[in-house]
Computed example of a mutant assay.
Amino acid sequence: MNRSGPVKLLGLIAGIALLNIAVLSPGLLGLEITGGSAFETASGVTLLIVSLLVVLYGSYTLLFKAPAAPSVRHLENQEDYIASLSKYRNVKALKKDVLLALDQLERIGKKKSTLLQVLGERFEPAELSYRKFLSVITGVEKLFYLNLRGILSKLSIFDASEFTLFTNRQKPKSFSDALVHRKTGLYNEYFAHVTGYLGANEEILLKLDQLLLEISLLDSTDYTAIEEMPCMKELSALIGQTKLYQN
């Protein structure tokens, strides 16, 4: 359901109610449904029917119709990624991976919030140490979402109906064994890419947990000591490799 739908629906209903009051109230336009001319009666009835239809359609659109997910290139925030992933959660072949990706999205949000809270308790935002940590956390978060983009790119070209056609064992044998073998290999490669991205993001989540532990055990606030922390080194190297790959 669209989260802002109920508020928008109330606004729609209020607007339609005000319109009907303005048109039908004797003190305003004073259109009469009964007792007036045939034209007034027809116009009044039409207004009420159209109002009802607008409310019904608005209710469906705002409360039940899934919002259109933006294209992968135009994803901007966590809500965009959730909407894009949710399009595939009812596809049987993809459901397990999609649910894991949605779970990972929720977890990285919580971990980032916890890390920022801990950093705020140990350092001042103006300190170099704070900025060092924040830079790494922000960089690895970007890498996480880059992996999600990779997943969504693969999901966008996946043909669930064709996959079912070639994997349904109860279907009469219509294709040669060689063709089925090649098609199966292609789909396995496809799923391997998706699984790889999910595994990479799970590794990022684990490293963020390790970073949180290392911060909690940190004795020194010297930024040089911070740069030598094992997890900081690993995350910095991971971010650096990704930048080289992108370039």
Score class of each variant (00 low, 15 high):
Glu227Asp: 05
Ala225Phe: 13
Ile226Pro: 02
Ala200Asp: 14
Tyr223His: 13
Leu206His: 11
Ala200Trp: 01
Tyr197Glu: 01
Leu208Gly: 07
Leu205Lys: 12
Ser216Gln: 14
Glu227Thr: 06
Pro230Ile: 05
Cys231Ala: 15
Thr195Leu: 15
Met229Gly: 01
Leu205Thr: 10
Leu213Ile: 10
Leu206Lys: 10
Ile226Gly: 03
Ile215Phe: 10
Leu213Ser: 07
Gln210Gly: 02
Leu206Trp: 03
Asn201Asp: 15
Thr195Ser: 12
Thr195Ala: 14
Ser220Pro: 04
Lys207His: 13
Met229Glu: 07
Thr224Leu: 15
Ala200Glu: 07
Thr195Ile: 05
Glu202Ile: 03
Leu206Phe: 11
Gly196His: 07
Ala225His: 14
Leu198Asp: 00
Glu228Asp: 11
Glu227Cys: 05
His193Lys: 11
Ile204Gln: 05
Ile215Asp: 00
Leu212Glu: 02
Asp222Leu: 08
Ile226Ala: 07
Cys231Tyr: 07
Gln210Leu: 10
Glu214Lys: 08
Glu228Trp: 06
Tyr223Pro: 00
Ile226Tyr: 09
Leu217Cys: 07
Val194Lys: 02
Asp219Gly: 15
Leu205Pro: 01
Leu211Asn: 06
Gly199Leu: 13
Leu217Tyr: 12
Lys207Ile: 03
Glu227Arg: 11
Leu218Gln: 12
Leu212Phe: 09
Ile215Asn: 01
Asp219Glu: 15
Leu208Asn: 06
Leu208Met: 13
Leu212Pro: 00
Lys207Arg: 10
Glu203Thr: 11
Gly196Pro: 10
Leu217Val: 09
Ile215Tyr: 01
Ile204Ala: 10
Glu214Gly: 08
Leu208Cys: 06
Thr221Leu: 13
Leu206Ser: 11
Glu228Asn: 12
His193Pro: 01
Leu212Gln: 08
Ile204Ser: 05
Leu213Gly: 05
Gly199Trp: 03
Lys207Asn: 06
Ile215Val: 06
Asn201Pro: 04
Leu198Glu: 01
Leu208Gln: 04
Ser220His: 05
Tyr223Phe: 14
Asp222Thr: 09
Leu213Val: 11
Thr224Pro: 00
Asn201Trp: 12
His193Gly: 00
Glu214Tyr: 07
Thr224Lys: 12
Ala200Arg: 12
Leu212Trp: 01
Glu214Asn: 03
Ala200Leu: 07
Ser220Gln: 07
Ala225Pro: 00
Ile204Asn: 06
Tyr223Gln: 09
His193Val: 12
Leu213Lys: 09
Leu218Cys: 06
Cys231Ile: 15
Leu206Pro: 00
Ile215Gln: 01
Lys207Met: 13
Asp222Tyr: 08
Leu213Glu: 13
Val194Trp: 02
Ile226Leu: 08
